[in-house]
Amino acid sequence: MTLTQADIDAEMAAERAAYDQRLADGAPVEHHPRRDYAPYRSSVLRHPKQPPIAIDVTKDPELVELSSPAFGERDLTAVDNDLTIQHPGEPVGERITVSGRLLDRDGRPVRGQLVEIWQANSAGRYAHQREQHDAPLDPNFTGTGRTITDDDGFYRFTTIQPGPYPWRNHVNAWRPAHIHFSLFGTAFTQRLVTQMYFPNDPLFPYDPILQSVTDDAARQRLIATYDHSLSVPEFSLGYHWDIVLDGPSATWIEEGR
């Protein structure tokens, strides 16, 4: 049986309706996707069926999960946050500047922590061997970046606008353009991997990965804002994207800093 976009659309609509019903029944807002989200077919055999066991971190300050690995200057090179100068030549595509703040769920800046990104090139192709999408590789673009947040929690990357790309979830499945982000907080409990999208992408309603976030407001938080003040004259267009880490941190350690 060949899965069409219409099949996936119907499944996504059913998932949204189920979420609306849960909300109407008094269930809490869901800020994250459910791991069991069948329209994204790869999730079917890869989500646990047993509920997780909850650990109340306020009961035990000794938990190693309340601390996080450290990263420093020697984990980076000078060009790591500029994906346009990592090769001898200029990459093809529209240059962009992506910046924002890394915050914890109390709105405090997360300082000195590692932000990693990876993305497709302007033609929608990843520099990954297993990637067989028939679009050109760019010898001047790898698509990986790293930085460490500053004292106000800001990160900043210079890169190329990634292209959308097809994938095999169903017939004519296309991912909206996105940048993958990996983030650390002050506690390992705050670990996050996610994706940033660009405003007004016509592919949003068709993409089961984005739509796995069934809450409308939560989904909007994955979409960067065009920010003219971040655009660099004669050089790049600016996008602002703040990231809020979920998961508890060790407030008794942070206080007084």
Partner: peptide, 29 residues
Amino acid sequence: MTKTDTSVPENVLPTPSHTVGPFYGYALP
């Protein structure tokens, strides 16, 4: 809206998680 107003704690809501996908292998390891 992805500029977070930290003066209003109720507005500080978590960024949703997403899959790492299949193509992190040249970036994260």
